[in-house]
Structure formats: structure tokens, C-alpha cells
């Protein structure tokens, strides 16, 4: 059986092309010009470049499309989960915290200045203004517990009978300066 098959296969070698076709084909072939090697290389280079370029463009379109679809139509693209809006929100909170801290810092500094001035005043005229001193001695606790808006400088102004004393007038001036 196998030998029969092999014999038949070998007999297929008898298949030959038509002689008229062969002559015609040969003539046509030899009459056609050969493409110069440089031209072929240039053509191959451009073909490869075109394929590469198309591939790159395809990848860019694919990635862009995927990102767009993901951001636009994805069920996960909820407003609350949007990274940009979250960042913006966080920045806003950050800046408001900074403003509050600046305010606290400012108020703290002004309190410190007040206390310093009061201490200076006490050093200048400890005897001349006993009433004012007494009030001022209890003042730091009051200043620390009250907000700048509610703590008025009037609290510290000396309104005793001895307000005509130069030292007391000086204290009043300083306190007014601080209030300004």
C-alpha cells in the first residue's frame, strides 16, 4: 500500500507546465526591469517606518481611549473618588487650616507683646500705680482665657483718681498703642 502511494506520488513529477505558457512567462520576466537594491532598501525602510508609526499611533489611541472611557463611563469614576477633586478639596482644607494657624499665631504674638509691655510698665512704676498694678497682676489669666475680640484694652485702662499721675498716663498710652 505504502509503496503504491509513493509510486503514485513520484508519478506526479510528470506534471509539467504548458510549453507555450513557459515561453511566454520567461519572455515577460526577462523583459521586466529589476528593482535596484537601493530602491528596495529605501522602500523596505519606509514600509517598516510606516508599520512602526501606525503601531505607535495605535497604542496611543488605545491608551487614550481606555483612559477616557475609564474616567467617563467607569462605575468607579464617582465624583467623591475623583482624585483631582479630592486633591482640590484637600488643598482647600489645608489653606483654611493655615489661615487659622496664622490667626492663632498672630493672637499669641499680640498677647505676648501685651504681657511684655505690662511687665515693662510694672518695672517702670511699681509704686505709683498700686491700683493699676493690682488689676494688671490679675490680667494675664484673663487675657489668656479671653479671645482677642472680647478682651478690650479698656479693661486694663487705669481709671482711678490717681490717673493724672504721669506713670499712670504712660500706662494708658501704651495700652492704647497696643489696642491700635
Amino acid at each position: 500500500m505504502e509503496n503504491d502511494i509513493l509510486t503514485t506520488l513520484r508519478s506526479l513529477k510528470q506534471i509539467t507546465p504548458d510549453s507555450a505558457y513557459t515561453k511566454h512567462s520567461r519572455m515577460l520576466l526577462l523583459a521586466s526591469p529589476q528593482v535596484p537594491a537601493t530602491e528596495q532598501r529605501v522602500s523596505t525602510f519606509f514600509r517598516l517606518s510606516a508599520i512602526l508609526g501606525a503601531g505607535v499611533i495605535g497604542i496611543v489611541i488605545l491608551l487614550g481611549g481606555t483612559t477616557y472611557i475609564n474616567e467617563t463611563y467607569s462605575p468607579l469614576a464617582l465624583e467623591g473618588l475623583n482624585q483631582r477633586s479630592l486633591t482640590a478639596e484637600a488643598d482647600e482644607i489645608n489653606s483654611s487650616i493655615e489661615i487659622t494657624l496664622e490667626t492663632i499665631d498672630y493672637l499669641d504674638t499680640s498677647n505676648q507683646m501685651t504681657l511684655t509691655k505690662i511687665a515693662e510698665i510694672q518695672n517702670i512704676a511699681p509704686v505709683a500705680a498700686p491700683a493699676a498694678s493690682l488689676r494688671l497682676m490679675s490680667a494675664p489669666a484673663e487675657v489668656a482665657t479671653t479671645t482677642p475680640e472680647t478682651a478690650s484694652v479698656d479693661t486694663f485702662l487705669i481709671d482711678s483718681d490717681s490717673a493724672e499721675v504721669p506713670a499712670e498716663r504712660q500706662i494708658n498710652d501704651i495700652l492704647e498703642q497696643i489696642a491700635q
Binding site: S25, L28, L29, S32, Q34, V35, P36, A37, Q40, R41
Partner: peptide, 10 residues
């Protein structure tokens, strides 16, 4: 054969 002939340069 046409293809072979035209590309013989390479």
C-alpha cells in the same frame, strides 16, 4: 519568478 527577479538585488 517575477518576485524573485525583482528582488534579486537584495
Amino acid at each position: 519568478f517575477l518576485n524573485a527577479w525583482q528582488n534579486m538585488g537584495t
